[in-house]
Design a protein around this nucleic acid. Structure first.
Length: 587
RNA sequence: GGUCCCGUAGUGCAGUCUGGAGUGCACGCCGCCCUGUCAAGGCGGAGGUCGCGAGUUCAAAUCUCGUCGGGACCGCCA
């Protein structure tokens, strides 16, 4: 039907007769017998010189045959790839007429209400930005799949209909027609199946898998999303990290043309201690500064009894933060669990150049303490210091939040800084209700061998369960968690020990996890794996702040599809066949 | 479940704080003119339940309450 794409025509094709097809991006009328039609397809735009008697308007679908001609002197357009040429002596065939689109299909649509775009997503997709994003996403999939295949991974599809499991994320439920009253669940991840594939001797499995979670939506979360899901047998942590690393570096290289640096590694403890968060954004500094020792014998009551005192230095930020904004920041700190926040603006004496601290609490701090504080934080005139005193974890977490708020660039703004966060704690604190440790990841995570001895120390487990590290790791990119994984427990005795600590006895373990763990009795290889979000990776590589921008048909925060109106009611007959009855709404 | 922000022609906005006739702007759309434009230009025109519902008031886009829709975040996402 066509000989060329619109955007690929160049002076090389001058004098050739070509046929292009696409949408009318713009018509500029000049007289009865002259008009310019910008014809657009996914590759770009080319100008066609037409007789104005032909009735083509915005978004008409047309086929144009004509001669590629050099543009007359002074009429070239450098902002267009095809700007040196135009198509003349054309015949125009209207393939489809079109109503005017409800919003402009160019950059101006970036400012249009997202609901309007989603309601007419098929029009939004015609835009250059969306065309580019879908192609970035396709490149990510391509690079990831190629990297896995290259490393001898086997692509296996796992079921979408699986048993409901009460653990973890809320699941989407599918009623069974053949067994009314029984239900499938859609997979929140292929976790169960991929470990059984290891028992099944597949050795190296991967899948670009659709996962579904019925949890509230966010900028980085949709009901359904794609993950690179992988699992390997006879491996240790490094093997998994290295295999995954190839996929994300390849993806970034294919999209951007540049291979990022090898992925850095940091332990969970160091990440918390230095950045105050388990998904640190390494693109900027403002690291947490240890100050507990500085105030070891302070008279300032808020600091005197604190287990941990740390601070951050927002360089040159003092002038940007007035009293009101600092009060707001203090409220933010409190909302993340701090008892309070100390701020100090660094000033200097115009005569001597000596630094001074302007703060409501400065008068409670000795000269020695103030000097040490300035010294430790590398403070200069104009800096803003924020200090938190609390238990270690709270101090870190609050400062990590403040650090991100004060210093973090947009997630999409380069460079790409991947980081592995390793040695996550096996347990995340103690459940208030039961007094038992709570699993950090899932209860099948392999404890760090150096810490397995701690599991037999009831006193340690009661007082400090977080000291047990796991062979669990996260992959982080520019402050976004891409995914996580672990080495799994394959040894029944160790599994039982972990269950015991979590307060799960044999009967309960059998009831909750039996279908999953019993196959391990037939010989499970040591194995581990990983999964990360393709949508998130594609969004960051496409320069987007929101995964909806790299998904063809995403849902807004409500989960209601503005284009198809899903979810909707269904026929009473279908409900009857499924043995379902809809109850009246209750409040 | 919670906190904060937003809702005015097809689209993007101003007007809302301080109530006074839908008072406007830009783009788009429709018609006419125009032979070198490229987010063309000129002239003319159409287009509005100010999200919806109550309340206060002589009078509500504007104030109050409720509700619906959207967004960011917290909870949640083992």
């Amino acid at each position: 039907m066509r000989t060329h794409l619109c955007g690929e025509l160049r002076p090389d094709q001058i004098d050739q007769t070509v046929t292009v097809a696409g949408w009318v991006n713009k018509r500029r009328e000049h007289s009865q017998h002259l008009a310019f039609v910008d014809l657009r397809d996914h590759s770009g735009i080319v100008q066609c010189v037409v007789d104005n008697s032909v009735d083509v308007r915005s978004e008409y679908v047309v086929k144009i045959t004509g001669t590629v001609t050099a543009r007359p002197e002074g009429t070239t357009n450098d902002s267009l790839g095809t700007g040196q040429i135009e198509i003349t002596d054309v015949t125009v065939e209207v393939l489809s007429a079109a109503e005017p689109p409800p919003f402009p299909l160019d950059d101006r649509a970036d400012d249009v209400d997202e609901m309007v775009r989603l309601r007419h997503r098929y029009l939004d997709l015609r835009r250059e930005r969306m065309q580019r994003n879908l192609r970035v996403r396709s490149q990510v999939n391509t690079a990831v799949r190629a990297a896995m295949i290259r490393q001898q991974f086997v692509e296996v599809e796992t079921p979408m209909l699986m048993p409901a499991t009460p653990e973890g994320a809320r699941e989407f439920i599918v009623p069974s027609r053949q067994r009314p009253g029984s239900f499938y669940a859609l997979p929140q991840s292929p976790q169960l199946y991929k470990q059984l594939l290891m028992v099944g001797g597949v050795d190296r499995y991967f899948q670009i898998a659709r996962c579904l979670r019925d949890e509230d939506l966010r900028a980085d979360r949709q009901y359904e999303f794609m993950q690179l899901d992988m699992e390997m047998s006879f491996v240790e942590v490094d093997d998994v990290l290295n295999a995954v690393e190839q996929t994300v570096l390849d993806a970034a290289e294919l999209v951007t043309g540049e291979r990022p640096d090898p992925v850095q590694r940091i332990t969970w403890h160091d990440a918390m201690n230095t950045y105050g968060i388990d998904k640190p954004d390494l693109r900027f500094g403002m690291e947490l500064v240890e100050l507990t020792g500085v105030f070891a014998s302070t008279d300032f009551k808020a600091f005197a009894s604190a287990e941990s005192i740390k601070g951050i230095n927002a360089k040159g930020a003092a002038a940007d933060w007035g009293r009101n904004k600092l009060d707001g920041l203090t409220d933010t700190a409190k909302s993340f669990g701090a008892k309070g926040m100390v701020w100090m603006k660094v000033g200097s004496d115009p005569e001597s150049g000596d630094l001074s601290l302007d703060s409501p609490v400065a008068k409670f701090l000795s000269d020695v303490e103030q000097k040490a504080l300035i010294d430790r934080t590398d403070a200069e005139s104009g800096d803003l210091l924020l200090l938190i005193a609390d238990d270690w974890l709270t101090t870190c977490e609050v400062l990590g939040e403040l650090r991100n708020r004060l210093g973090r660039p947009p997630v999409s703004q380069g460079p790409y800084r991947y980081v592995w966060v390793v040695d996550f704690p096996l347990f995340v604190g103690v459940d208030d209700a039961t007094g038992l440790p709570r699993p950090g990841h899932h209860p099948f995570c392999h404890p760090h061998p150096e810490d397995i001895g701690l599991l037999d120390d009831p006193e340690k487990m009661a007082s400090d369960p977080m000291s047990v590290r796991a062979w669990a790791y996260d992959l982080v990119l520019n402050g976004w968690e891409l995914g996580s994984g672990s080495i799994r427990i394959h040894d029944a005795e160790l599994q039982q020990k972990v269950f015991a600590i979590l307060g799960i006895d044999e009967v309960e373990a059998e009831a909750r996890f039996g279908f999953f763990l019993n196959p391990f009795r037939y010989g499970a290889p040591p194995h581990g794996g990983f999964a990360y979000g393709i949508d998130r990776l594609a969004a960051i590589l496409a320069g987007e702040e929101n995964i909806r921008e790299v998904i063809a048909f995403p849902k807004p925060q409500s989960g209601l599809d503005p284009m198809t109106a899903a979810p909707g009611e269904i026929d009473a007959e279908i409900l009857r066949e499924l043995g379902l009855r809809v109850l009246p709404q209750t409040d």
